[in-house]
Every structure is written in C-alpha cells, then in structure tokens.
Design a protein around this nucleic acid. Structure first.
Lengths: 107, 107
DNA sequence: TCACAATATTCCTTTACAGGAATATTCTTA
DNA sequence: TAAGAATATTCCTGTAAAGGAATATTGTGA
C-alpha cells in the first residue's frame, strides 16, 4: 500500500469533494458552489486528487467534468482485506504475545 | 468519515508501523529495531496512532506493548462500502451526466 | 475576432508536522 | 536505593502544503 491515496484523502476538503463525487460526475463550478469552496482551491484539490489517480477529467466545452476512478478504492479495499482477520479474530492476540515473551525468558 | 484515521495512516513510517502490527502486538523497541526507525520517532508515531484510536497500549513492566484496535478498520471498511457501487456499476455514469446537462440546456 | 465564462496556475504567507538531539520519566533488579 | 533499561517528551529546525488574491489560459458564441 502506498500512501499517495491515503494522503490525498486525508485533507478534509478533498475528502468532501470525493464524497460529493460519489453521487456522480460534477463540474468544477458545481463542486465549488455545493461545497462553498473558492474555485481556485477546488481546482488545486482536484489536481491533487487527479495526480493520485482518484479522479479523472473529461473536457466538455470549457467545462471540466470530474468523476471518481474506481481503481484506488478497489486497491484500498484489497488492502483492508489484510486487516480483516484482526477484527474477526476470536482469540486475544495479546495473550499469545505475552505467552511468547514468557517462553523466551525461560530459555 | 472523519479524516483523523486517514491522516494518521497517510504518513509512510506510520503506515509501516501499522502494517507491522498487523502480524501481532509488538514492543516499542521491537518496532524500532524491525523498521530501523529511532526510538523517539517510533514513540511519537505511536502517540499519533494512539490518539487516532488505531492502536492501544498495554503496560508490561517497563515495556509497552502496542497492538492494533479493530474499530478504525471496521469504520474504514464501512465507509468504503459506500463506494462499492462506483466500481460495480455497469453503466457509464458520465454518459448520464452529459444527458442531464443536455436536457437542462433544452429547457 | 472579441468579450466573456470556466478553469488552472502562480506567488505569497502561514501553519502543521516530521526528524534530530537531548533529556525526562518510569520501572526493574541488584 | 542506585544504576540501568525501556519509553516518552521537549525543543529546535526545515519543509511541505493549504488558503487568499491575482492572473493566466482555454474555449465559446456573437
């Protein structure tokens, strides 16, 4: 797992943009209006999201339509899978660790 | 979704620590050694992870055993769920958007 | 071609935060 | 109780990055 996706999503305004785009593609102006963020900042955030591969652009006249790309989410999901055992695990792994420590000390 | 979890995970060294802890609980010293990061930095990163609720500590003599907490991962997974339709969706949502735009202009 | 609309970029300032080094704290054991 | 582990904290410095304001760019339609 590389941190570019997480990093891009960790900025509050950027996360808001992503959550908004979850409902469907939007123009820069629409995003700016809906979120009450000035247009230049929206463009900058979209740039970061685009560089991270989280959104893609489609030119339509002099508008730019932004939409989410599925890949990073699929990737994130795959990464999370490897942690699934942590919350499905019935036994307390801390006990295991302490037992191990004890065994080492007995040697 | 709040950004504290994402923010904590977006730092490369911190992510490494989390990935290491995925295998089981570890001491500060063990983390420091395994990842070749100086102890004070490890402690600092663990502090951030702890504040974010990603890890919990268990005192054992003068050692501190850190281990992952499941909650943030469960939460992250739930959040990701809401994006699942994006990558499972068969139809191209961009086309829908363009059609909507066209309809609006015809009015 | 010109004026305007939509978007991107640049420059500046401020703030958050990571790492280094040193030191403080806490616990154990001899 | 003193010394030494293991860990946490503090202070400092450098750097990345976010927001504001202004401006550049690109495309459209008259």
């Amino acid at each position: 797992m590389d941190t570019t996706t997480l990093n891009a999503l960790s900025e509050p305004n950027r996360l808001q943009i992503v959550e908004l785009l979850r409902e469907g593609p939007l123009t820069v102006g629409e995003i700016s209006e809906r979120l009450q963020i000035r247009q230049p900042q929206v463009s900058k955030h979209l740039r970061v999201l685009s560089d991270a591969g989280i959104v893609k652009v489609h030119a339509d006249a002099n508008r730019r339509i932004y939409q989410l790309r599925p890949e990073p989410f699929i990737q994130l999901n795959a990464w999370l899978e490897s942690y699934r055992r942590i919350w499905e695990e019935r036994f307390d792994s801390l006990d295991d660790y302490l037992k191990e420590m004890q065994e080492k000390e007995e040697k």
